[in-house]
Nucleic acid binder design. Structure first.
Length: 597
RNA sequence: GAUCCCGUAGCUCAGUUGGAUAGAGCAUCUGCCUUCUAAGCAGACGGUCGUUGGUUCGAAUCCAACCGGGAUCGCCA
C-alpha cells in the first residue's frame, strides 16, 4: 500500500520503539504498515515476523512491547491488540475527527505544484477512417493520465499526432475521385470522417476486384497484389503529393478537413481537448538530419547504402533508419519529432506516448536510439502502453467489419442511459435540455469507467451489454452516490446552518463512519500512486470502494434525522468530504458528476 | 525460431516493495422502500490463484520448467 501521513508519523515511531525496546535499529524499508483486516479491531497493522531475529523474542512478546511503546509515545495510537505476529493499532477518534474536518473543508486531493512540465501524447489517429473503440481506450486513458498528472501538481501539455499523410489517405482520395460523384459531408449529411472512411472501403473493394481479375488471367496472387492498377495509381498520387502537385494537395486538404470536422465533433462529445496538434505531413521530414549526424559520429552505420542502428548489445536487433534511396522510415520521423518537442518545450520534464502495446518494440528501439544520440532527456521518455480491446466475438478487425465505431458506441451508451433513467422516472421537473445533458453524462460515465477501471497494461474484453450497465461496479453507480449526497446536503442547507458543531461532545465514531474515513484518508496516497504509475485504474477502483462504503453508511446511519446536533453535523461533514473527493477523483478520470439523477 | 505480455469464482476484473481465513461486480437465490434518491443496502451460493518444482517462518505475489492465449520481430506505417 502506498504511503500516507499516518505512515509518515508511525514509521519513525516504530523505529524508536524497536530501538528503545530491543536496543536494535530496524530499517525503515523493512517496516510495512498495512490496513487492518475487517475482522480484527484496529486501523493499521504491522507484522512483526520479519523482526524476530532482531528482537530475539516471540512474536507475541515483540508485538506487545512495540504496541506498549507506541501507545506511550504516539498520541494518535489509542490502543492495540496482538493476534499471533500481528500488531493491530487503533488510531484515535480524535485523529479521525481532525482529518474529517480537513477533508470536508479543503481538497485533500490537491497537491502542491511540482513545477514540472509534462507532455502527454494521447491520440494518434489516421485520417482515412473514423475513430473506433480502440481509439477510445487510448484517448480516455491518456486524458485521465493527463488529469491525474495535473492533479499531482504538474503542468501538462496534451497533444495529438495526426497521421494525415501517406498511402492510406491517397487511397481514400483516389476512390472518392473515382466513385464519389462529388459527394461532400454537406451534400450527403454524412459525418466527414465517416465519408472519407467510406471511400477507403470503396478503394479496398475495387482493389480486391482488380487483384481477382489479374489472378484470373494467370498472374500469381502476390504479383497481382502489387500490380493492381488502382494501387499503382494511389502510389502515384502519393508521389504527386510529395511533389506538391496543387490539385492533389487541394484534394488532400479538402478531405482531411472533412475528417478533422468529424474528429472534432467526436472529441467534443466525449469531452477531450488538445493543447497542440502535430501533423505527420509536417513532421515526416524530421529526423533525417539527426540520423545523418548520428552516422557521422559513428552512432549509426552504413550498409548496402542504407543507414542502420545496431541494438544487438541491448538484446534487440539491427534496424534501418534511412533507406538506400535516402528516404525516411517511421522510426526516423519519431526520432526527429521527439527532438523537436524538446526544442519547442525546453522545460519539458517528461514525454509520455499513449500507444498500444503492439508498438512496445518500436518504442524500446526509439528510446535506445535517442539515448545513443546523447540526449539527456531520453531517460524521461515513457511509452504508456495499453492492451488491445477484444470483443466477445474475438478481435476487432477492420477488414472483417467487426470494428466498433466510436460515435455509434457513444450513442448506444447514451441511449441506454436515457432508457434506464426514463424508466426510473426521477426527472419530472427536468427540462429537455437538462435531461439530454444528464443522459450524456451518465452514458459517458458508463463507457469511460468501463474502459478505465481495468489495468491499462492488460488486454481487456469489451462486453457491450456490460458496458451500458449502470449498476454495481460502474461509473453511474459512483455518480448516483454523488447525486445522493448532494441531495442530502441541499436538504441540510437550513438545518446545517442552525446546528452548532462545537456543541458536539460525542467524538465516538461508528464503525460505518470509520470505514469511510479510512478510505478517504488513503485517497491522496492512491492518487499519487496513480500519478507515479500512470494508472487511472487504481484511482477508479478506490473511488468505487469509497462510495460503496459510503452507501453502507448511508443505508444504516441516519444523517438529517439524527437528533444529536453534533453527530448530525459530523455526518454531514463526512458526506461533504466524500462528495468532494469523489468529484475530484472522477474529474481525474474525465468523468462528470451530476447534482441530481 | 527469438523476444515480450497475459493466465485469480460460471463471466468480467481487483489483489504492486512476499504476510492473517484470496476480494468486488455481473449472473443465480433470499431478505429490505408509510424514514435522508432501492441506479441502493444486507445475506447466500461460488476458488487445486494454468501445472509442476524451488526459495522462505510464510508465495496469487519471487525463481525455473512446462501448458494455454496474445503481441512483436519489413529498406511497412
Amino acid at each position: 500500500m502506498s504511503q500516507d501521513r499516518l505512515h509518515a508519523l508511525l514509521i519513525p515511531a516504530l523505529q524508536r520503539a524497536f530501538q528503545d525496546s530491543f536496543g536494535t535499529p530496524v530499517e525503515e524499508r523493512a517496516l510495512v504498515l498495512q490496513q487492518t483486516r475487517a475482522e480484527f479491531e484496529g486501523d493499521l497493522t504491522i507484522n512483526v515476523f520479519p523482526f524476530l531475529r532482531v528482537t530475539g523474542k516471540s512474536p507475541e512478546q515483540t508485538a506487545q512491547a512495540i504496541g506498549e511503546h507506541l501507545v506511550g509515545h504516539v498520541e494518535v495510537v489509542e490502543r492495540f491488540n496482538v493476534v499471533k505476529g500481528f500488531l493491530n493499532l487503533v488510531i484515535s477518534d480524535a485523529y479521525w475527527s481532525r482529518f474529517l474536518h480537513e477533508a470536508a473543508s479543503s481538497d485533500i486531493l490537491a497537491f502542491p505544484a511540482t513545477g514540472a512540465e509534462v507532455m502527454v501524447e494521447y491520440a494518434s489517429p489516421n485520417t482515412n477512417k473514423p475513430l473506433h473503440l480502440g481509439h477510445l481506450r487510448n484517448i480516455f486513458l491518456g486524458w485521465s493520465v493527463s488529469r491525474i498528472l495535473e492533479a499531482a501538481g504538474n503542468k501538462v501539455i496534451k497533444v495529438q499526432v495526426i497521421n494525415d499523410r501517406g498511402i492510406h489517405i491517397c487511397k481514400s482520395m483516389l476512390a472518392w475521385q473515382r466513385f464519389g460523384n462529388g459527394e461532400t459531408p454537406a451534400s450527403s449529411g454524412l459525418k466527414g470522417d465517416k465519408l472519407v472512411g467510406k471511400y477507403y472501403v470503396e478503394f479496398d473493394k475495387a482493389y480486391k476486384q482488380e487483384v481477382d481479375t489479374l489472378v484470373a488471367t494467370g498472374v500469381p496472387k502476390e504479383e497481382a497484389e502489387k500490380q493492381a492498377p488502382i494501387l499503382l495509381e494511389a502510389q502515384d498520387m502519393l508521389r504527386q503529393w510529395e511533389a506538391n502537385d496543387p490539385a492533389v494537395r487541394a484534394l488532400w486538404e479538402k478531405m482531411n478537413g472533412w475528417v478533422y470536422d468529424g474528429f472534432n465533433a467526436t472529441y467534443e462529445r466525449i469531452g477531450v481537448t488538445f493543447d497542440k496538434n502535430y501533423y505527420e505531413s509536417q513532421t515526416y521530414v524530421l529526423g533525417k538530419e539527426d540520423v545523418l549526424k548520428g552516422k557521422e559520429r559513428g552512432v549509426f552505420y552504413e550498409k548496402d547504402g542504407a543507414v542502420w542502428v545496431d541494438n544487438t548489445k541491448e538484446g534487440l536487433d539491427e534496424k534501418v533508419l534511412l533507406r538506400r534511396d535516402g528516404t525516411s522510415v517511421y522510426m526516423t520521423q519519431d526520432i526527429g519529432t521527439a527532438i523537436k518537442r524538446f526544442e519547442e518545450f525546453p522545460n519539458l520534464k517528461k514525454l509520455i506516448y499513449t500507444v498500444g502495446n503492439e508498438q512496445d518494440y518500436h518504442f524500446k528501439v526509439l528510446f535506445i536510439i535517442l539515448k545513443k544520440l546523447g540526449f539527456a532527456w531520453a531517460d524521461e521518455l515513457f511509452h504508456l502502453s495499453y492492451g488491445m480491446v477484444d470483443l466477445p466475438s474475438g478481435k476487432m478487425k477492420s477488414r472483417e467489419g467487426t470494428v466498433v465505431d466510436a460515435d455509434d458506441l457513444v450513442q448506444e451508451v447514451v441511449d441506454a442511459a436515457r432508457a434506464v433513467t426514463t424508466e426510473l422516472g426521477k426527472l419530472d421537473d427536468f427540462s429537455d435540455e437538462e435531461k439530454a445533458e444528464l443522459f450524456e453524462m451518465i452514458g459517458l460515465a458508463a463507457l469511460k469507467y468501463f474502459l478505465l477501471k481495468v489495468d491499462p497494461k492488460k488486454r481487456m474484453l469489451f462486453d457491450p451489454a456490460a458496458s451500458i450497465d449502470l449498476q454495481g461496479h460502474t461509473g453511474p453507480f459512483i455518480q448516483y452516490t454523488y447525486a445522493r449526497i448532494r441531495s442530502l446536503l441541499r436538504k441540510a442547507g437550513e438545518a446545517a446552518a442552525e446546528s452548532d458543531p462545537a456543541s458536539s461532545k460525542s467524538q465516538v465514531l461508528l464503525p460505518e463512519e470509520r470505514v469511510v474515513l479510512k478510505l478517504l484518508h488513503q485517497f491522496p496516497a492512491v492518487l499519487s500512486e496513480a500519478a507515479m504509475r500512470l494508472d487511472p485504474s487504481a484511482l477508479a477502483n478506490h473511488a468505487y470502494e469509497l462510495v460503496k462504503a459510503y452507501n453502507g453508511f448511508y443505508q444504516s446511519v441516519p444523517v438529517l434525522k439524527e437528533e444529536d446536533e453534533g453527530k448530525r453535523s459530523r455526518r454531514l461533514a463526512l458526506s461533504t468530504a466524500v462528495a468532494k473527493a469523489t468529484k475530484k477523483a472522477m474529474w481525474c478520470l474525465g468523468i462528470e458528476v451530476p447534482e441530481r439523477m
